[in-house]
Simulated assay, not measured.
Amino acid sequence: MCAVAAVAVVLAVSACNKKGEIFEQQMDTIRSWVESRNENGSAYTEIMSGVFRDIVYPEDGRGTPLAERGDSLYLMYEVYKFSTSFSETSTGDLIYTNRPERMPDRVEWNRDTLRIVLGDGKLMKGVEESLAESAPGDLVMVVMTSGNAYGDHTVQQLPPNTPVAWRVNVEKVIENQ
């Protein structure tokens, strides 16, 4: 019985070490990518461990209201497999979208504008945190490690332990009354 428990502890420690290595590797890759983008005018910041955000404002200026916890947000979005070749205008490695013009031929995904209540936990925490202080018309770019995304789960064609990038257009913000 003790030998079985010892093997279980070794396997658990090994799995934790592997996850830690994956996280560090992804962080190095994402940080390097973010630095190269920031040198070219983007403004990615790390808003929580392993989650980086850039808010691109519309040409006609910043809208109002700024989204806060409890507000309703209406979103159009795209989710991509992240790699060092990812770009903000990328169409490759698309995992999911509600934008009809971005959907692959013969693929039917939900085309409805996504409505969320900021902070209700229905989106990944990293994406929700990234939407705080966004406004109607903003484009929010989010890049995150797999641990902040789908972890070791396979999602559609996305392999386990894969970092992702979200491209979110904030269509409307309705303040919580």
Rank of each mutant, 00 (worst) to 15 (best):
C2Q: 15
C2M: 13
A3Y: 08
V4C: 08
A6E: 05
A6D: 04
V7G: 05
A8Y: 10
V10D: 07
L11N: 14
A12E: 11
N17T: 07
E21F: 03
I22M: 02
F23R: 15
Q25R: 15
Q25W: 10
Q26N: 07
M27Q: 12
M27K: 13
D28K: 12
W33L: 04
W33D: 08
E39W: 05
E39I: 02
G41H: 08
I47N: 14
S49G: 04
G50L: 02
V51T: 14
F52T: 04
I55F: 00
Y57H: 14
P58W: 10
D60G: 09
L66F: 10
E68D: 12
L73F: 01
Y74A: 08
M76I: 10
Y77I: 02
E78C: 12
V79A: 13
S83F: 03
T84A: 02
S85M: 05
E88N: 09
E101G: 04
D105I: 10
W109A: 01
R111E: 14
L114D: 11
R115P: 01
V117A: 01
G119F: 01
G121R: 10
G121D: 06
M124K: 15
K125H: 11
A132R: 15
S134T: 14
L139F: 00
M141T: 01
V142F: 01
V143W: 14
M144E: 11
M144W: 05
T145L: 00
T145Y: 01
S146K: 11
G147T: 10
D152Q: 04
T154L: 04
Q157S: 07
P159F: 02
N161F: 04
P163L: 03
V164N: 12
W166F: 13
N176W: 01
